[in-house]
Amino acid sequence: MKTILTGLATLGFGVMLTVGGALAQEQHSEAEPTHFPIEKPHQESWSFAGPFGTYDKGQLQRGLKVYKEVCSSCHSMKLVAFRSLEELGYTEDQVKALAAEYDIQDGPNADGEMFTRKGIPTDYFPSPFPNDAAAAASNGGAAPPDFSLIAKARAVERGFPTFIFDIFTQYAEAGPDYIHALLTGYDHTPPEGMEIPEGTHYNPYFIAGKSLAMPKPIDDGQVTYDDGSPETLDQYSRDVSAFLMWAAEPHLEARKRTGFRVMVFLVLFAGLVYLVKRRVWANVAH
C-alpha cells in the first residue's frame, strides 16, 4: 500500500512537471514570440570566471577605449571614478591625463557662477546628456541605461535545471555573456511575418523584446587597437563586456582571492573541529 501510494505521488508530480514543461513550450510562434530573449546568449570564456578568475588588464584597457569612443556618446557611467582606472594598469599620471580630457561642470564659485574645468582623478565619468529627460528626448523617448552596473543588472534566465548546475560551476558571467550576445546579434534577419516596429532594430538576443531602439552600435574596424588585437566586432564586444564587468564589480579579484583563503581556512578548521568532535564523542554511543 505504501509503495503504491509513493508510486502514485511520484507519478503525480512527474505528470505535473512534464505537462507543465510541455505546455510552457507550447504556443511558441516564430513570428510573434512571447518570451524574450528569443535566443539565449552563448556562454563565452572569460578570464574573470571561476574561483581563481582575474581581469585581463589589456582587455579592460581595450574595453575602456571602446566605451570611450563608442558607447559613451549615449551611455553614462556615473558611478565609476577616474581614480579607479588605476586598477586597469594605468599610472597615476596616465589617469590624470585621461581625466583631463574631460570637461567637468563645477561650481557655483564665489561669484555664484557655474564654471567648466578640466577633469581630475576624483571626478566621475561625465554623462553625455545633461539629465535623463534630455537623454530620453534625444533617443526616441527612452534614456539609454547607465553603464556602471549594467553587467550585473542584465542576466538571461537560465531555466531549470541549468540554474542548479550553475551553483556548482560558479557561473556568474550572465551579464557579460548577454552584452556580448547583444552586440554581436544585430545582423540576423527577423523570421517571416514578424513585424518590427518603426525605429527599432531586430535582435534575437535582446532581453525585453524582439527589437530595441539602439541601432547596431559598433562594427568591424571602428576602433583602433594599438596592441595588435583583432579589430573585429567579436573582439570589441568581448572587450567592452569585460570592461563593463569590471565597472560593475571592481573588487572581483580581491573577492575571489580572499575567498580562497577563507575556504582553505574553513576547510582545515572544519577538519580539526571534526577530529575534536570525534574524540569527545568517542566513548558515547549516539
Partner: peptide, 8 residues
C-alpha cells in the same frame, strides 16, 4: 562563504 565569495 561559497556564496559570498564566488556567487554573491
Amino acid at each position: 562563504a561559497y556564496f559570498i565569495f564566488y556567487m554573491p
